[in-house]
Amino acid sequence: MSVVHRVRLPVGATPMVEVGHRVEPAEVLATRRAPRGGISVAVAAPLRRSPADAAKCLLALPGATLDAGSILAQDDRGRQVRVGEACILLGYDLDDGSAMIAPLSGSEPVLGHVRGEVVSLESNAIELRIAGALVTGVGGSGNAVHGELRVAVHEPGDELRASAIDVGATGRIIVGGSRASAETLTRARAMGVAGIVLGGILDKELRDFEATQLRRREIGGVRGDFAVILLEGFGKVGFDPGLFAWFRTHEGRMASLFGETARLYVYDAGPPPARRALPRPGDRVIAHRRPHAGQGGELVRVIDRPYAFASGVVGRAALVRFEDGHTAVVPVANLEATEPLSGD
């Protein structure tokens, strides 16, 4: 199985790979020279002109990128103002006759954070084919990270506790359960965990954690990357048991996790249990939304006539026997069929 991952290149990036090139997660795909803070360069004074006159001598327009040593301004007597380092010209101040430039840093790497083969190369993106499976989530947070998968809960509905995070989790992507508190996330980050895969999390706890991290970043107290992905929903939502079993079979595999875009690549993995809208009787299903969010079961039958739920909403309904033994009527719109793993 393979999937394609697209790496967007920022403006001005120079690709360092070619089509057919095989890359590792930490490999440099391209380099870029990122702008640094703006500085002022005197223009009018070296040209011995008034600010207004000196403005007419500028050879570059705002927004232009200049190489080191390029002429920024020149007058008819041969006087020149050059930039000492590569920069972006951002403006010219008519009051004091200076130019605002943003010097460009030394070469910075653009990483793909995935292992794969380059299949296309464009000015704004590189596409990589990954031998493995893609699991997409409904939300997430954090940067791109990679590491080995490690399952840290026993059951798909278990909450990931802070006590489950130990030194063995360092550098790994932890597969948790139905929820992780802000305290657990904070401990995971402190222990050097690369990322966490959860069925659900309380939105408030994720936001609280993000706010804490932001404050710590501002004061320079956070190093390294960390990402979280939610696969099922917000709130205390367990994994689909089939998907949890799939993670168990892939424990120890390398994976790349993109928190912001809620994508998880698991290398050399077979396809995860597929999801299908509009389940049929006999299908194994996963329920979304309360009161059954994250619960798996079997769709026993679809009710013939429109059904009025406790909310008063009328819709197509199905009788579902959940894996904890209870049965309930659930809107079909809130169910997805999950394909069983081969061998189930």
């Binding site: 409904v138 939300g139 309380l202 939105d203 408030k204 936001r207 929903g233 917000f234 709130g235 979304h288 939304r289 309360r290 009161p291 059954h292 969010a293 739920f309 406790a310 909310s311 008063g312 909403v313 819709g315 659930v330 809107p331 719109a333 809130n334």
Partner: peptide, 26 residues
């Protein structure tokens, strides 16, 4: 509570074609 509503609003974003089953969600 606010925390439950925050989860619901995220659910509306992530799974917009689902239906509110409980009176609170509605």
């Amino acid at each position: 509570e606010e925390a439950a509503v925050a989860d619901l609003l995220q659910t509306l974003r992530a799974r917009p074609s689902t239906l509110p089953q409980t009176p609170e969600e509605l």
